[in-house]
């Protein structure tokens, strides 16, 4: 990679009491890259994400985003630098309309009129215009996922973190989501965590595998998914 990195992480460690969830991880993401993160349950992927988004403060190590050392920053400040995150369990405004949810996300960065345009555009792009006036709390799980993805990209972040975006989506919804993500990835940097290998195959070029809080292997998607160790700790006998 000759492109300058947008994200550079050195020796990131996060401990909870006696449990070390993330254990000295080095990780570099080039500007404009899409990286998939896979690994067994409990490997530390979500903790890693939470350290990047500021929901957790790392125990040690450094997180450099665009030249700023953001370790220990509050979430809202990191978000303002241009980081958008979709959490594993959808985190949306259940008591507000879909439209309002996306508008609020866009409004942080844009003025009222622009935010409205951005919101309309996104709802169309996500194919959820018909749900605009529904309360998000009334929607099915996969639809809430889409709303949350809309909120994440509404303020045009430079780095997007998606934690299990395909969870709870049906086959062709996953395909549509993959197309959307590939499109987003043309302009932005992304890290995507998911367990759906069909989905990972649709979007990924490079994959990083976490195992027990460390990076097990990193590389091209075909090589990684064919790796014996990865099959052993993660994929099982499944053909992917």
């Amino acid at each position: 990679m000759t492109v300058a990195p947008i994200l550079e992480i050195r020796k990131l460690t996060k401990r909870f009491g006696g449990v070390t969830a993330v254990d000295g991880v080095d990780f570099t993401l080039a500007d404009g890259e899409l990286r998939c993160l896979i690994g067994p349950n409990g490997a530390g992927k979500s903790t890693f994400f939470n350290c990047l988004s500021g929901q957790l403060a790392p125990t040690s190590g450094a997180v450099h985003l665009d030249g700023h050392d953001i370790s220990g920053w509050p979430s809202h400040a990191i978000a303002r630098l241009g980081v958008g995150i979709k959490t594993q369990v959808p985190s949306v405004f259940d008591g507000l309309e879909v439209r309002e949810n996306v508008w609020l996300a866009a409004r942080r960065r844009y003025n009222a009129r622009e935010a409205k345009e951005r919101c309309d555009e996104l709802l169309t792009r996500l194919n959820i215009q018909s749900l605009a006036a529904h309360m998000v709390g009334e929607l099915a799980h996969g639809q809430r996922q889409l709303v949350e993805i809309g909120m994440v990209i509404a303020s045009d972040p430079r780095l997007i973190l998606l934690d299990e975006p395909a969870a709870g989506m049906s086959r062709d919804e996953v395909a549509r989501l993959a197309a959307l993500i590939s499109e987003i990835a043309r302009e932005r940097s992304l890290i995507v965590v998911d367990h759906d290998m069909r989905f990972i195959r649709m979007i990924a070029e490079t994959v990083t595998v976490f195992h027990q809080g460390r990076v097990l292997i990193e590389g091209e998607v075909d090589k990684v998914l064919a790796d014996a160790m990865v099959k052993d700790v993660y994929l099982g006998k499944q053909v992917v």
Binding site: E164, H195, Y234
Partner: peptide
């Protein structure tokens, strides 16, 4: 199976 790794899905 939502959010479960492939090998555990097999299990």
């Amino acid at each position: 199976t939502e959010g479960v790794q492939p090998s555990i899905i097999e299990e």
